[in-house]
Amino acid sequence: MTQANNSIPITPTDGTTVATHTPTGVKEYQVFIRARADGHLLDTVGTYYVSALALTRAANRNHFGIMNYPNSNILIEVENVSGWIEAVGTATGVFPGYQLFRITSMSGGTIIASADIQRKDTASPDPSSGFAAMRTNFTVFGLASEALSCLSIPEEEASSASSTKTMFFDKRWANQPILLSTGEGICVRQGAVTGAGAGPVVSFEMIFKILT
């Protein structure tokens, strides 16, 4: 939690001019650029996207996660985590719960190669070696006792709900993202219910930023 800690008496003598804009017929307005609280100019931090598609459901299974490894020298901001069902057969619907947990490490799943991680701006660099994204039934360590977010995912094909993204987290809820410092990660974990039938498979996506 941080408060502003300075005042700004300005002596404009460095030779440059202050950026202004003068709409036709009206007064001159100073033009500002917004910055984030950490000083990065707004909308200049690279945004990345990873997904885990059509996974087999199982009780208490870890499906999808990302890690900021120790000594990575990066900070990860998770902006959105969502999940949904992609059914390949009918199922008598239930809606099992899924949880988003903090973790400290993960292993045994399928790593998504850094070069394959999608980004909004292709000029954004590959995620560093201190970052990993993993999917498909892996082992986690340091699982928190309380979930960071939880929701259910509808499976009933007779309901349009089954094709709707279920949002576990969105930064707009709290006006800030989930922060993953070095040695911290998160994973989506299925609850104690497997779900109904063999038809539905479950998918997830995550949107995040990496700060160096």
Binding site: M1, T2, A19, F32, I33, C150, A174, Q176
Partner: peptide
Amino acid sequence: NDYQTIIFAGPDGYLQGLGDMYVIT
């Protein structure tokens, strides 16, 4: 041209986006 760069704060003076945010379930 120098663009002054501004960081937004709430009416209580705390910078936006840096709150101590928690969740119970």
